[in-house]
């Protein structure tokens, strides 16, 4: 095991510092980044499902509101959304820690993007499937839930898991509203080792990479299982 600095083509790599920092950073990743991602994604998917269903329905005023929501979220930077929610809540006399504030912002963001994915996958189910549901006597709702959504959600799994992996990385923005997650932890460590700060960031990048790599393996497994019944 390497315990001291290593010289490589004139560059001095601070192995010891990187080894010491690895666990503290990884632990914030496991304790904060991953739960933040999971919770935000879960809530986001629920919002997305509701949004998609409203947007394919013919409930006019509600459709309008959800259209504006999706358009606004997609048309503004996530960092700006985070800041707005962070500073807006106190204005509304709501006191909330940075962590739940970040969850709200990320959930709303996921909700908008994922609703587009879900809506597109609902629309990709052939019209004949709706009609087949109707002809065996089903209502719109029943057809939607028994016939269309099971097929649509299967189609949306690959793009949704891409969004999930994307979210893992985007949660680093929560550092900007003082959530001590993986990236902010590295910033803190870096601040006390300014000369070697780039290596701390490289370490952080490496940890993100490992997490995303593991998730992408899980994604492939999931997709393979889902494809079992739909080989054409």
């Amino acid at each position: 095991m390497l315990t001291s600095n290593m010289v490589l083509g004139g560059i001095v790599i601070p192995w010891e510092l990187m080894q010491q920092s690895f666990w503290p950073i990884l632990i914030e990743g496991i304790k904060v980044t991953i739960p933040l991602t999971l919770i935000s994604f879960f809530i986001g998917i629920i919002i997305a499902l509701i949004t998609a269903l409203v947007r394919i329905s013919n409930i006019k005023p509600l459709r309008w509101i959800f259209n504006i929501y999706v358009s606004a979220i997609r048309g503004t930077p996530l960092l700006v959304q985070l800041f707005i929610i962070f500073y807006l809540l106190p204005e509304l006399n709501v006191t909330l820690d940075p962590y739940p504030t970040a969850i709200i912002a990320f959930s709303l963001n996921v909700g908008a993007y994922a609703s587009e994915i879900i809506r597109a996958s609902i629309l990709s189910v052939p019209k004949g499937q709706w009609e087949a549901g109707y002809t065996i006597g089903m209502s719109y709702r029943k057809t939607l839930f028994r016939v269309i959504l099971p097929q649509a959600l299967r189609v949306s799994v690959p793009p949704l898991s891409n969004s999930f992996i994307g979210l893992v990385k985007e949660t680093s923005l929560a550092s900007q509203i003082l959530v001590t997650e993986l990236f902010r932890k590295s910033q803190q460590i870096g601040a006390t080792n300014l000369d070697q700060i780039v290596y701390i960031y490289i370490l952080a990048a490496f940890i993100y990479w490992i997490i995303c790599f593991i998730l992408s393996l899980a994604q492939h497994q999931l997709e393979r299982r889902l494809n079992r019944y739909t080989v054409r």
Binding site: P126, T135, I136
Partner: peptide, 14 residues
């Protein structure tokens, strides 16, 4: 009250 058979079958693939 009626059953329908389609040109393109439209079975539920799932």
């Amino acid at each position: 009250k009626s059953g329908m058979v389609f040109q393109s079958y439209n079975l539920f693939p799932h």
